[in-house]
Design a protein around this nucleic acid. Structure first.
Lengths: 259, 259
DNA sequence: TTATATTGTGTCAAGCTGACACAATATAAC
DNA sequence: GTTATATTGTGTCAGCTTGACACAATATAA
């Protein structure tokens, strides 16, 4: 099975030029939230032990966005992921690292100099928001691992992938009031404190608990559940779920109040 | 001169495959503000009399952003234009119109079916903010006109250029508090009312004059000038200019108050 | 000289923000 | 079983912001 996949990928590396749109790739910054921290899903390349964002190429008859959706499905085993294109990384300089060269060598591809993978690529950055616990990370044929990494403690990344993550976070921060951030990162029901932690992480600052509670409830986008939470040695919080209808309606105009 | 340019362009159409990155183009939504209205700069193609955004291709050793800068310089004769990438339009469907086919025919290019211009293109959308009166619109070799059009009254546009403009406006609207909108659209000195009109146009709603005045001044980003304005039969307003330093500092965190 | 449109500034009620207070309570420690 | 601890739900309140409107000042047109 693993062997078969590798052959499939080798085959694609050989026939890629015929299959894919030249010069353009997609890379996905997959955000998850766990234990009070933001995480991104990264792949570890076999050939150089460096980490990279899950990415891929665009079939000649495929929407660019669909290529990103493919990559996401393959790495996370999830369907219907929330996805947002955030930037096209188009500098000449980003192709200078010759990352592809060693990869091709390692895979035993001939004619490396003229290989399509060696050409210049621009890449479209997409960020995804996923529910951490639902994801089953799957490495691709060129990778040995696919694991979560805290955004505050990233490993060595290929090319400009670190900048791509940072840009993704920056855009997410600015779009916070217009994106269904909590809805996609949290499970169906959750205590308000979890949502507050997400907002604090994205905004990079502490928020007053009482004020956050009052404000988020004032939008009328949360439904209170009867159930209680079982956690630490303290009073149990109520659980809430998003009222999808009013939440998405509120997002159209943005959650306008300040945080 | 005009003839020479045409030949230059014909030459480029022939040698484009060798010069340009395949599959990718840039299109610029150039916004100006005049007579209380938002305008975009459009080109009218000779071969089909349809209008289009100023656009172009990316040299193989050129940053994508630089390609957009080239296009802007050529069409407006301006340097140091404020420019913002806002979206990559990457659907398969957008290449279906066969817009290139007639163009190539018209220009007398042979081997049309295999021509590189006929392939699928994805395009990076950039918006620019320019000072209307400083622009000297220049058509390119394939166009008969390069003129301003009110965004409320757009002509027939090729492919998805209308959607590109709309997306650009939408992004501009959401980024309003983070972009130096007034600084780039207005002349060095201006009355506050002009700035208010820009905000009203982008936001699509009327703002209270007195409140706008108080709020914009409260940011401390405007310097009051001694000079007065000469206009209609009424009290003359003060003129202001942006205090560049405090303006850009304020934009880092966004002009956070609501409009 | 008068009319008109628009400006600079003022007022004020209603609502929101940020900071802090305090009783209630689910579990852990003893 | 009792007590300690951390965290929750809710309350208060001064200070600020918002939105709506008021009114005198004034540059030009009539």
């Amino acid at each position: 099975m693993q062997h078969q996949e590798t052959n499939f990928f080798k085959e694609q590396l050989r026939t890629g030029e015929a299959l894919y749109l030249p010069s353009i790739s997609v890379d996905c910054v997959i955000f998850g939230f766990h234990a009070g921290q933001f995480k991104v899903l990264l792949l570890k390349y076999k050939h150089n032990n460096k980490w990279a964002l899950p990415g891929g190429f665009v079939y000649k008859d495929e929407d660019v966005e669909n290529a990103a959706i493919r990559v996401l499905n393959e790495r996370t085993q999830l369907k219907d992921i929330f996805l947002q294109q955030f930037y096209l990384f188009g500098d000449v300089e980003r192709s200078k690292e010759k990352h592809a060269e060693k990869l091709l060598q390692e895979e035993g591809i001939e004619d490396i100099d003229a290989h399509w993978l060696q050409q210049r690529f621009v890449t479209a950055g997409y960020y995804a928001l996923v529910e951490y616990n639902k994801v089953k990370p799957v490495p691709d044929a060129l990778s040995s691992e696919c694991t979560w990494h805290s955004i505050t403690d990233l490993p060595d990344l290929i090319i400009d992938h670190k900048q791509i993550i940072e840009k993704g976070l920056q855009v997410l921060r600015r779009q916070l009031n217009f994106q269904p951030v909590g809805y996609n990162l949290l499970p169906e029901v959750f205590p308000i404190k979890e949502l507050q932690l997400i907002y604090e992480t994205i905004l990079g600052k502490k928020l007053d608990r009482a004020n956050f509670q009052r404000k988020i409830l004032s939008y009328g986008i949360l439904d209170k559940k009867e159930k209680h939470y079982s956690g630490g040695a303290h009073k149990a919080p109520y659980l809430y779920s998003f009222n999808k209808e009013s939440y998405f309606k509120a997002l159209e105009n943005g959650l306008a109040k300040e945080w």
